[in-house]
Amino acid sequence: MKKNKDVIIETAIFMCGMLSIIFVISIFIFLFKEAISFFWDYNFIKFLIGKNWYPNSNKPLFGILPTIIGSFLVTFGACVVAVPIAVMSALYISEIAPKGVRNILKSLVELMAAIPSVVIGFIGIRTVVPFVKFFFNIPTGLTAFTGSIMLACMIMPTIITISEDAIHSVPWEYKEGAFALGATKWQTVRRIVLKEARPGIIAAVMLGIGRLVGETMAVMMITGNSANIPDSIFDPVRTMTATIASEMGEVVRDSAHYKALFAIGLVLFVITFIVNFIADLFLRKK
């Protein structure tokens, strides 16, 4: 009787473990199936480097270069803003802050991770958008830069939590050794702690980037949605995710436009897959 129970539970757990693999593979197959028929009638190179996205024209054009650049620009900007702040804040939490402060900070950071992206977008549209327009004196506040700032707020908690874990797991003996040799606190942190925790920090950043590339709601609300190749970070842009989200609801099934949106989804999937793969490499290196 007991043995039977064991077997049943074991199989159940095994099935659950397999489920995620099945999900990933079937999602990929579905995306690939829907997207591949698009490339029978539309050149893949023309799709990737085309500068115009006019899906409903008499002669439709499906060029996603502006949206790739848009996604890249917003992601890059958000990283530049978020990574230094997040890493320093992780350092403060795990190395410098007294225990009481540390506990409060940690739970606040985790709370910050729970803010839904639509709320971030809403706050951005009411506060950061008018501020950016006024401060930089540009025609509109709906720009890639605004998106970067709001998205930076969104990924900071992820980066802080994971890098804090990495920093915290640096063995105490290493630090003791450094102090014994007469190193100051800053020297120890810079030369020993950061160096030892580097793979973990890079993995944290990579996971953050993965989340950035896939983020939809906030960028749709605050980056302006203009499928134009931007001259600078202060121009409106449109991201790949926003293109899919804003057009998918309105498209006729099995039309070229519908398949083109799946093709964008495939490109996105490949990009996030590569980013996560790199993050995994760094985590494993440790």
């Binding site: 115009n52 008499n58 509109t140 949605n225 203009s226 134009n228 804003s246």
Partner: peptide, 15 residues
Amino acid sequence: KNAIEEFSVKSLMMP
């Protein structure tokens, strides 16, 4: 019906 004019790519597409 046969014209091919489109909105400028610079226009912001609002939801």
